[in-house]
């Protein structure tokens, strides 16, 4: 006996958004970092177009400071779903002299990604880039639209955004502009984890507790990898059992001590946690308006 479709408002909304992207744009792409949010996006896209294939390529902006576990899973996913993966390298932008490598204690390639991303968008002529940003992550992101228009320079004009009434999404743009699309805007960190657990979605192993060499700075645990993450002599490396709550560039992602080896334990830990998800993101700590400023320049 067949059942009635269960409503899951967040999943229904995300699928609706994916289908609008397919309906309204010529050349969309999914921005794929390999983190849990972008993996969730791919899972939702798979559902939105089943039994058809996901009709968009994945675009990965590679900082060169990756966690190998993340890249391995990315490649596996691409193969399984027969996707088109496009990778653009921050290193290429550095070599071409478009951006300058940061130096010093807090050097990171996080901000350098912006230029590489904008170039990739221009090269491929993408008119819509689907990202896994969520409004609950950060207060500037709380102001973001589901269809967020960017000008020729990728800039976000936060004071002049299109109102989004009911569920109608207006994707009309001029040539040269593009839209950033956020299908899981209304999900919280816990919603994503609950979904990963329910749907049994494979995520990189570094989200689960594992032994890792780390050093302590500003009450955060930084991954010890001297080739990538700058470390001062008095910052002592120790081995700890840790996991990551967000996965970004290795040089801007801190770990937390954890013994959550299984997804169920991770979900439990997040419910109990006293620290917000981006509390371990060093890139947000630069100033109160750090995210807003990066978004104005084209960050997603």
């Amino acid at each position: 006996m067949l059942q009635k479709v269960k409503n899951n408002p967040l999943e229904d909304e995300a699928i609706y958004i994916f289908r609008e992207v397919a309906g309204q744009f010529e050349k969309p792409a999914i921005l794929f970092s390999g983190g849990k949010d972008s993996i969730t996006l791919v899972h939702l896209a798979k559902k939105a177009f089943y039994p058809g294939k996901i009709p968009f390529p994945l675009l990965h902006i590679d900082t060169g400071h990756n966690f190998p576990e993340v890249i391995a899973l990315r490649d596996k996913l691409v193969k399984e779903l027969d996707l088109d993966l496009k990778v653009h390298y921050v290193q290429d932008s550095i070599d071409a002299g478009i951006v300058k490598e940061e130096t010093g204690k807090y050097a990171s390639r996080n901000k350098l990604q912006i230029e590489t991303l904008l170039q990739a968008i221009e090269t491929h002529g993408f008119d819509a880039c689907i990202g896994g940003a969520r409004r609950d992550e950060e207060k500037a992101r709380a102001k973001e639209r589901i269809f967020s228009v960017r000008d020729d320079f990728g800039q976000w004009d936060e004071k002049n955004q299109r109102p989004e009434v009911f569920d109608m999404l207006n994707g009309r743009i001029d040539f040269g502009q593009n839209v950033r699309v956020f299908p899981i805007s209304n999900w919280t960190e816990l919603d994503v984890w609950n979904y990963i657990q329910r749907e049994n979605i494979e995520i990189p192993s570094i989200y689960m507790a594992h032994k890792r060499k780390v050093f302590e700075r500003d009450n955060l645990l930084w991954p010890a990898n001297d080739a990538v993450v700058y470390r001062e002599e008095d910052e002592i490396v120790t081995e700890k059992t840790v996991r990551f709550r967000t996965v970004g560039d290795m040089s801007c992602t801190a770990a937390v001590e954890s013994f959550a080896f299984e997804i169920d334990q991770v979900v439990h830990e997040i419910k109990q946690s006293n620290l917000s998800e981006r509390g371990a993101r060093i890139d947000d700590k630069r100033s109160e308006a750090a995210m807003e400023q990066r978004k104005q320049q084209g960050y997603f």
Binding site: K139, K143, K159, T188
Partner: peptide, 24 residues
């Protein structure tokens, strides 16, 4: 300060744009 996400909002002490806030 938890909800006013834009610099202009914090400067003027007012809310300009719709902000979405999540709790459970």
């Amino acid at each position: 300060l938890a909800t006013d996400g834009l610099t202009a909002e914090r400067e003027q002490g007012i809310t300009i744009d719709v902000a979405h806030i999540y709790f459970s």
